[in-house]
Each structure stands twice: as C-alpha cells, then as structure tokens.
C-alpha cells in the first residue's frame, strides 16, 4: 500500500470515528513526539510539502513547554489538528506578545470548532504567562487562514510586514 492509500485509509478511520462521536468531544493537549508524523502528514496535505526535518526541529524547540506552546487536538485518540506559537519580545519596540505561526486542522474535521478551540487554548497559555496580545502573519492570498483568524476576532495590528529581494 503506498503512502497515498495509507493516508486515505487513516483519514477515513479518523472521519468515521469523528462522525460517530459528533465531534464535540475532542481534547486539546500538549504535543508529544509521537504526534510529529501526524503533523507532518497534515501539513503536507494542507501545503503540498512534506517537511519532516522542520517539524522535528520545531518540536525540539517549542515542544514540551520549551520556549513555546505546541498543542494538538485529538478525538477518540485520533489526531485531528495542531497549533504552534511562541512568545516574541521587543521586535521594533513590540512588548512581549504571543505569536501563532502554524495551525492545521484535518480537512474532514473542519467547521467543527477544532481550530477555534486550539486557538483559544494557545491564547489561554499565553495569558497565563502574562501575555496580552497575540499576533500572527500570513499570506494575503491565504483566504482560509485569513478568514479563520478574523473569525477569532483578530484584526490588522500596528505592525506591517515588509520584504526585499537581497539580490537587488
């Protein structure tokens, strides 16, 4: 069975399990090493890129409460989403704030409140350590995530993203 078929089979199991439980019943917890392979698959499904080394490094850096918050959502012991963030401070005068820089929810588990719960959970973690603002940065063309973060109440902030081609 190739990777694609394995993925489909796993997704079907996940969805069947979710449907059976009407999906209200999911848990948000800290990511553990065993989640990395599921996160890599989900990210690959959403972005088209499989980034094994990136996610391993992200877990080493931010998992287990080291320097950030790396949370996952699961339903009936099936992985269905993740969120990743850290605290950044004093970038061009910005007091410490929470940065969310990755979120993913399984395609078939969307519009069930999982992304909202992941986002609320990471905001609570930030709040518990004294953070009052949470920020993120995404592509203008990323309609899905733009709409999601807007639906959580996020709005344009006082900072703006700039870039340059260094070869110019």
């Amino acid at each position: 069975m190739n990777y694609h078929n394995l993925k489909i089979e796993k997704l079907q199991k996940t969805v069947e399990s979710m449907s059976a439980k009407a999906i209200n019943n999911f848990l948000i917890r800290d990511a553990v090493t065993n989640d990395i392979s599921e996160i890599v698959k989900l990210d690959a499904q959403n972005t088209g890129l499989e980034k094994n080394e990136y996610w391993k490094a992200a877990f080493d850096r931010f998992g287990n409460g080291n320097g950030g918050f790396f949370l996952v959502a699961e339903s009936d012991q099936h992985f269905c989403g993740y969120i990743l963030g850290e605290i950044r401070a004093w970038e061009f005068g910005s007091p410490p704030c929470g940065w969310v820089f990755a979120i993913g929810v399984h395609n078939d588990a969307r519009e069930m409140g999982i992304g909202s719960k992941l986002f609320k959970s990471i905001c609570q973690h930030f709040q518990q350590v004294g953070i009052e603002k949470v920020r993120t940065m995404l592509a203008r063309s990323d309609h899905l995530n733009m709409s999601f973060f807007r639906s959580q109440g996020m709005r344009g902030g006082p900072f703006i993203q700039l870039e340059i081609n260094v070869s110019e």
């Binding site: 203008r140 309609h143 733009m146 709409s147 973060f149 807007r150 639906s151 109440g153 709005r155 344009g156």
Partner: peptide, 23 residues
C-alpha cells in the same frame, strides 16, 4: 489595493457580526 481586497474578502457576514464588539 491588494491589502484592502484581502481584508474585505476575509471577513464574512457572520464574522463581522460576531466580532464587531471588539471595535
């Protein structure tokens, strides 16, 4: 213009009504 369009396109009627109190 691109920022304007992306912003207007990211706010659904439901999101607007749900979040307008933040303003």
């Amino acid at each position: 213009d691109e920022i304007t369009i992306a912003t207007l396109n990211s706010i659904s009627v439901e999101t607007f009504l749900k979040t307008m109190h933040f303003y």
